[in-house]
């Protein structure tokens, strides 16, 4: 484990800088997927305990993000998208980011174990370890399959939520995990098709950097074909109802259409495809990849929101949240 280079502080750290270390936008996605798992478990859990479980999972995700920003400060400093982060910008010292990550990791795992159960706490500890050590310190700098394998860390929150509520992690919980796991490669590779110059400059072996844009476009198509059946699985097991089936099928058809456009287009071939440092303002050649990236977020949100809605609307039934304890 190599500690990052010490960064000279350019201005005093504000509390907002420490919040930024936790990647609040990623945390909001984690809260959403973990809450879906927790609600779908249909276990008699008090709302306050459910909220504490979600808080622990969110803080755990924030802790792993802080550890990631501590270790990746050298990479972040070389990428347009990330060079304004608190550590590479010099607003927070690396040691402070490391300390925050460790303290919040211990806090979130211990509180989840004491308040809910140790299966959920163990899964949370594994998730933090997998993201901070396996993905950040090893996979990210070593293999083009980094986001495929590392995607497991982002896929586990619904399982943790389910385990927190029910004390177990059945097949349906792992189906939710599989949806996010299979969704991650087309989502991130679509993004990397038009940000590959950043990754190349930072020495991160993303697929477009190591294998080229054409291979990446083909891999996006293959993973998209594998993703849709997984998204339909909840309808087969009874986890999702008719509304879910409709959203998964229709939304999946749009996903495949956009993935095919990427597959048959030239996204990633042109140099410097971005107009600004933002993620959505791109030149014409990269629009297919940008569209798939943006739509993939909407599709995943719709899938989980529909599941959430179906289970909350059925909350009049005994045993569901609403008639708790």
């Amino acid at each position: 484990m190599t500690p990052p280079a010490v960064v000279q502080a350019s201005s005093p750290a504000r509390w907002q800088d420490f919040v930024q270390l936790l990647k609040p936008r990623v945390m909001s996605l984690v809260v959403f997927t973990a809450a879906t798992g927790l609600i779908c478990a249909q276990a008699p859990i008090h709302p306050v305990m459910g909220a504490i479980a979600i808080l622990c999972i969110a803080v755990g995700a924030g802790a792993s993000a802080s550890l990631n920003m501590w270790y990746d400060a050298d990479i972040d400093a070389r990428m347009r998208r990330t060079r304004g982060r608190p550590v590479p910008a010099g607003r927070v010292q690396p040691a402070d980011a490391l300390a925050l990550g460790i303290v919040l990791s211990l806090f979130s795992v211990m509180l989840l174990g004491l308040a809910l159960n140790w299966l959920a706490a163990g899964l949370l500890a594994f998730t933090i370890f997998f993201y901070a050590v396996v993905y950040t310190m090893w996979l990210k700098r070593w293999t083009a399959q980094n986001i495929v394998i590392g995607g497991l860390a982002g896929a586990l929150p619904p399982v943790i939520g389910w385990a927190a509520a029910a004390g177990q992690a059945p097949l349906d919980a792992w189906i939710l995990c599989a949806i996010i796991f299979m969704w991650t490669p087309p989502h991130f590779w679509a993004l990397s098709l038009y940000t590959s110059e950043d990754y190349a400059a930072a020495g991160v072996p993303m697929l477009p950097v190591t294998a080229g844009a054409a291979v990446t476009r083909r891999q996006i198509w293959i993973y998209s074909l594998l993703l849709i059946p997984v998204c339909l699985a909840p309808a087969a097991t009874g986890l999702g109802g008719a509304a879910y089936l409709a959203v998964a099928a229709l939304g999946g058809a749009v996903f495949l259409l956009l993935a095919w456009r990427v597959r048959s287009g030239r996204a990633g071939d042109a140099a410097d495809p971005r107009v600004t440092d933002g993620l959505y303002d791109v030149k014409a050649a990269a629009r297919d990849a940008r569209n798939l990236f943006a739509y993939s977020i909407l599709y995943l949100t719709l899938l989980f929101a529909t599941l959430l809605g179906e289970h909350l609307l059925g909350s009049a039934a005994p045993g569901l949240p609403g008639g708790l304890i």
């Binding site: 201005s11 509390w15 305990m49 504490i52 004491l114 308040a115």
Partner: peptide, 27 residues
């Protein structure tokens, strides 16, 4: 900046106390 950080830490500690209290009561 230091005053803001101190306030954030104070709020965090109060939040932690409330959390432990709630967990104790509901457990």
């Amino acid at each position: 900046a230091r005053r803001g950080r101190n306030l954030a830490i104070a709020l965090g500690l109060v939040g932690f106390v409330v959390l432990v209290y709630l967990v104790t009561v509901f457990r």
